[in-house]
Design a protein around this nucleic acid. Structure first.
Lengths: 251, 251
DNA sequence: CGATCTGTTGATGCTCATCAAATCCAGTGG
DNA sequence: CCACTGGATTTGATGAGCATCAACAGATCG
C-alpha cells in the first residue's frame, strides 16, 4: 500500500519491519482526487502532511501574467508538505495531474515519529534534502542548458525516480503529462517542447507512446542530457541501473 | 559575534537568552578565508556545519561546458550544510565571494541541540525550508521572467535578506558581486546584465556605487520585479519595511 | 458523433548570446 | 605622484534560440 515510499526511503536508511509498520500506521485517511484538483493553494496554511500513493501531482507557482510554472513533480511515494508545522503559509500550490490517491497524515503522527524513530526521521529529512537538491539541478538546467538537453535531462531524472519508487523495472516509465505541462516545468512553450521531442525521437534516444516514455539508449540519453546521478543521492538505484545496463550490453 | 544569525532566526521563533547562549557556544572554531576560496567541493563528503559570520559566499554547480552556475548566495548569518550528517556527498560546491570569516560547527553540537533545544531545532529547520523556498522562486524567475525583471527581483530579495540579518537599516545594501557573477546567478551573460542594470538606473529604480546598491523607490522596484514577499517567510521584516516605507512617504 | 483537448507544422520576430573592442578603475610599484 | 597592469564595465554589431501567432490534424471523451 505504501510500498513506493518505503522503496524510496530505503535509499537513505535500512528500515526495520517495525519502522515499516510505523510508516503504515501513520496514515489515518486516504482521499481520492480527480485530475487537476488543487490540494493546497499558495498563501494557505499547510495542515496535513501528504503522501501520494497513486498518480502524479505537481508543485506550481502562478506568475503575475497568470501563467503557471511547475517547480516540481510528485510521483507515487513522494511526501509533500513535511514542513507543515513550521511554515505559516504555503509559498506554492499543489495540484493533481491525474486521478490521485492521497494519504493525509496528521502532524502529531510525524511529531511522534520524530521523538521515537530516529531512523525514519533521518529518512524524512533525507527526502526534503533530496527535494532541495532536485530544485538546484532544475535551476541550472533552466539557466544553462538548451531546450532539448533540458528535456532529456528531465527524462533521465524521472527514469531514476520511477526506479527508486519501484514503479518500473525496465527502461521505460509512465509520464502522464501533456507537452504543455512539460513546457511549464522546463520554461518552454508547448510548440518548442514538441519540436525538441521530435529531435529526441529522431536521434533514437526515446520513444513516447500513450504517456509511456521508453528510453532507447540509456547511456546516450544521459550524455546528451548532461545527466549526472549525484544530485539524486540514490547510490543504490544508480548501482542497479548501471549493472543492468552492463548486462544488456554484454549479454 | 553571531548577531546576524540570531537576528535572522528570530523571524521564526523567539529565542530565549538561554537559546542565544547555546548558539554562541556551538562555535568551536573560526577561520578566515581569502576571496574565491572553495569551502567545499561537489562530490566531497560534508563534515562541519558552516556559519558565515562575515562577507559573502555562494553555492554553485559546474556545467559540462565548464561554466559555473550560482544556485544561491550566502550572506552573513546564513548557515550552509545543516545536512552534513545525512548526505554522503555534496551535490554542489561552496566558494567565498569576498574575504570571509567562517565558523565551523561540529555535527555533535547540532545533534545535541536537536535533543535539548526544540526551539532552535525549529529555527534551523525553518532556515533550510527558507533555502528551498528561495530556490523555487529563483527557478520561476529564470524560466518565466525577462532579464531586467529577474535582476530587480534579485535585488528585492537581497534587500530583505540583508534586513533580516540586520546588515542594513535603510534602503541600501552591500553587494560584493561583479556583473559576471550576477549573470552566473541569473542565467545571463555579463554583457546583458550590464545593459539591464543601465535600464534599471535609467528608470530611477536603483543606483550602484562601489558595491553598494541603493534602492531609490522600493515600491516601484517591487512592482517592476514582480516581487512578492511571501516566499521569504519573514513576516516581521515585511512589516518593518512597509511601515518604514509609509513613514518615508507621508513625511 | 460532434466537441474539446492535445499534438504538429509553418512563418515571423524578439530577447538575449556571442564576439570584439574600447574605456574605466583599483591596486602596484617605481 | 604618476605610469603600469589586469580586471571590470561599457558599447556596438551580428546571429541563434526560442516565443508568438495561426491553422490544422489527431486523439479522447462524453
Amino acid at each position: 500500500m505504501i510500498d513506493e515510499m518505503i522503496h524510496k526511503l530505503s535509499n537513505c536508511v535500512t528500515l526495520s519491519s517495525r519502522d515499516k509498520d510505523v510508516l503504515r500506521k501513520m496514515i489515518t485517511k486516504v482521499v481520492d482526487l480527480e485530475k487537476n484538483t488543487n490540494v493546497k493553494r499558495e498563501e494557505e496554511k499547510p495542515d496535513f502532511i501528504h503522501l501520494l500513493m497513486n498518480g502524479w501531482a505537481c508543485r506550481y507557482k502562478t506568475l503575475e501574467n497568470g501563467k503557471e510554472y511547475i517547480v516540481g513533480f510528485l510521483l507515487p511515494g513522494d511526501l509533500s508538505t513535511l514542513n507543515a508545522s513550521i511554515l505559516t503559509r504555503m509559498d506554492h500550490s499543489i495540484r493533481t495531474l491525474t486521478r490521485v490517491k492521497l494519504a493525509l497524515i496528521p502532524q502529531e503522527r510525524i511529531d511522534h515519529i520524530h521523538l521515537y524513530y530516529p531512523n525514519i526521521t533521518r529518512a524524512f529529512f533525507w527526502s526534503t534534502l533530496l527535494d532541495e537538491s532536485i530544485l538546484r539541478e532544475w535551476l541550472v538546467s533552466q539557466g544553462g542548458r538548451p531546450a532539448a538537453v533540458r528535456l532529456a535531462h528531465l527524462f533521465c531524472e524521472i527514469m531514476m525516480r520511477s526506479r527508486a519508487a519501484g514503479l518500473t523495472d525496465d527502461y521505460s516509465f509512465y509520464m502522464p503529462l501533456t507537452q504543455e505541462e512539460l513546457g511549464n516545468a522546463t520554461g518552454l512553450t508547448k510548440v518548442h517542447v514538441n519540436r525538441c521531442l521530435r529531435h529526441l525521437r529522431m536521434e533514437n534516444l526515446i520513444e513516447i507512446h500513450r504517456h509511456r516514455v521508453s528510453i532507447l539508449d540509456w547511456e546516450r540519453l544521459q550524455t546528451f542530457g548532461e545527466f549526472q546521478t549525484t544530485y539524486l543521492h540514490m547510490p543504490r538505484i544508480v548501482a542497479d541501473l548501471s549493472l543492468q545496463e552492463q548486462v544488456r550490453k554484454t549479454g
